[in-house]
Amino acid sequence: MPILLLAAVVVAFDQWSKYYVESHMQLGMSIPLIENVFHLTYVLNPGAAFGMLEHRTSFFIVVALLLVAAVVYFYPRIPPGHLLLRTGIGLQVGGAVGNVIDRVKTGYVIDFFDFRIWPVFNIADMAIVGGVGMIILSILRSQQKEGQHE
């Protein structure tokens, strides 16, 4: 099942990158890679995107577990040939699991990509956003195809 492989690769890369940041940087440390544009900044995020719903660790864990359960249930029902949808689901699940691992271990998510005009984020966040984007695009394409056949 390729979705499991994609999700596992996302989790592995996400956890490795967080371990690397955690073991090579001090909390709050910021390393400019492109001055005033892109930094590696080690922060702990107690919430979701943009720091929303801070310290709601149990809520986020439950939501992630529900997401994984929904994928386990619905994934086999996706008709073959929907590669964009399947890839999006794999990215989203991998990202959700990557961040849940942090939440279970510490109650926080390790973030480090800092573009200075956007909240600091991590690889799991990128996978979630990219996966959701692919899922939306897949749905829009399906609706477009249905509209053409009417």
Rank of each mutant, 00 (worst) to 15 (best):
residue 125 D to L: 03
residue 84 L to M: 12
residue 132 V to N: 06
residue 139 I to R: 09
residue 135 I to C: 01
residue 135 I to R: 00
residue 122 N to V: 02
residue 72 V to E: 09
residue 115 F to A: 03
residue 129 V to S: 14
residue 106 T to Q: 13
residue 109 V to Q: 10
residue 79 P to W: 00
residue 95 G to K: 13
residue 144 Q to L: 10
residue 83 L to S: 11
residue 76 P to H: 13
residue 92 Q to G: 14
residue 144 Q to A: 04
residue 103 R to P: 00
residue 113 F to L: 11
residue 144 Q to G: 08
residue 120 V to A: 01
residue 81 G to F: 04
residue 92 Q to D: 01
residue 76 P to Q: 11
residue 114 D to T: 10
residue 73 Y to D: 00
residue 107 G to S: 07
residue 81 G to L: 03
residue 98 G to C: 02
residue 90 G to K: 08
residue 76 P to W: 09
residue 124 A to C: 01
residue 136 I to D: 06
residue 78 I to L: 05
residue 74 F to A: 14
residue 95 G to T: 10
residue 111 D to V: 11
residue 90 G to E: 02
residue 104 V to I: 14
residue 119 P to G: 08
residue 134 M to L: 12
residue 112 F to P: 04
residue 78 I to C: 00
residue 120 V to S: 02
residue 89 I to L: 04
residue 86 R to F: 02
residue 90 G to H: 08
residue 145 K to M: 05
residue 137 L to K: 01
residue 73 Y to L: 10
residue 117 I to P: 07
residue 77 R to L: 13
residue 103 R to W: 04
residue 112 F to T: 12
residue 121 F to W: 07
residue 78 I to F: 09
residue 126 M to N: 10
residue 143 Q to W: 14
residue 84 L to F: 12
residue 77 R to D: 05
residue 92 Q to C: 10
residue 130 G to P: 05
residue 97 V to I: 15
residue 103 R to T: 02
residue 94 G to C: 09
residue 135 I to P: 00
residue 143 Q to G: 15
